[in-house]
């Protein structure tokens, strides 16, 4: 009886897979990446170009940087494309990845309610602004999800000498969720929030919020790309994965990144190795 049952389940699964779209014909790679790149629409802009050129489909799993690295460590992806340089280097050092390459950067911005209770509007110094928020005990929404953005935010607080752990639950509110969800939360409770510019630009529920602080060097946000180590995970599609990385770093890829716009505004700034950039110039 149990054999019949198993056969039935197998049949159901096979039947379900039979209905799968024929597009599964293409070779594909899985890229573990972040919500900022996916939600901003960057991948929608880049991937068709890459696929047209190489015939390789790119399947993007967009999660927080922390989770993306974890997934890559488990071998659940061929390429890691995230923004937390320190963690990425650790990942490579531990043998999870082959080599890390700078791809591009964008920047973080501090978003705040138009009412601006902490009086930081128009500031250029991120640390000073955070100090003021802490002093005013103005609500601040944090990702709190171990993402690249979250890590960058914690570093900024450290620089400002504010112990946010102590303020947790008070004015410092950790949402433990993605960028979009955190922006929604901030919009809902009139809180300040640190966001990458791309996510913010593409965000539709801006409500009563605007950029309060931008342009500080400390707010730069570097993206790197890494091939998952095939020595550790045999199934990694080295050839296809490497082709994707090479393309991102090539003149063509870098130009494609530069050409991505939201409402006419450039979002990501390619900065792969200068040799490649020169050819682009």
């Amino acid at each position: 009886m149990s054999r019949k049952l198993l056969a039935g389940i197998a049949a159901a699964l096979v039947l379900a897979s039979a209905g799968a779209p024929a597009r599964a014909e293409n070779p594909f790679i899985v890229v573990q990446s972040t919500t900022s790149t996916e939600n901003s629409g960057l991948f929608k802009h880049l991937l068709p170009m890459f696929t047209a050129k190489t015939g390789i489909d790119v399947r993007v799993v967009a999660v927080g940087t922390g989770q993306a690295i974890k997934n890559a460590e488990n071998g659940d992806g061929d390429v890691l494309f995230v923004h937390a340089k320190k963690s990425e280097k650790e990942f490579v050092a531990k043998g999870g990845g082959v080599k890390r390459f700078d791809v591009m950067y964008n920047d973080f911005v501090i978003i705040g309610p138009k009412a601006d209770p902490a009086k930081i509007d128009g500031g250029k110094d991120a640390t000073a602004a955070l100090k003021k928020i802490a002093e005013a005990k103005a609500p601040f929404a944090s990702r709190g999800d171990d993402s690249g953005t979250h890590k960058a935010e914690l570093k900024l607080w450290e620089g400002a000498g504010v112990d946010v752990k102590a303020a947790g639950g008070d004015w410092y509110r950790s949402t433990g969720s993605g960028m979009g969800a955190t922006l929604n939360t901030a919009a809902g409770m009139g809180a300040y929030v640190l966001s990458d510019r791309a996510s913010w630009s593409a965000f539709k529920n801006k409500a009563d919020m605007k950029i309060a602080v931008e342009g500080d060097k400390k707010l730069f946000n570097q993206y790197g790309v890494i091939l998952v180590n095939p020595e550790k995970h045999k199934h990694v599609k080295v050839k296809e994965g490497q082709m994707f990385i090479d393309w991102l770093l090539s003149v063509e890829g870098q130009t494609a990144i530069r050409s991505f716009r939201i409402e006419g505004e450039q979002q990501f700034f390619p900065n792969a190795e200068q040799t490649a950039m020169k050819k682009a110039g």
């Binding site: 919500t35 939600n39 993605g178 960028m179 979009g180 969800a181 922006l183 929604n184 919009a187 593409a202 965000f203 539709k204 529920n205 801006k206």
Partner: peptide, 9 residues
């Protein structure tokens, strides 16, 4: 996904 993009509508 659309919620996280803030496209609540």
């Amino acid at each position: 996904l659309e919620t996280s993009k803030g496209d609540l509508a």
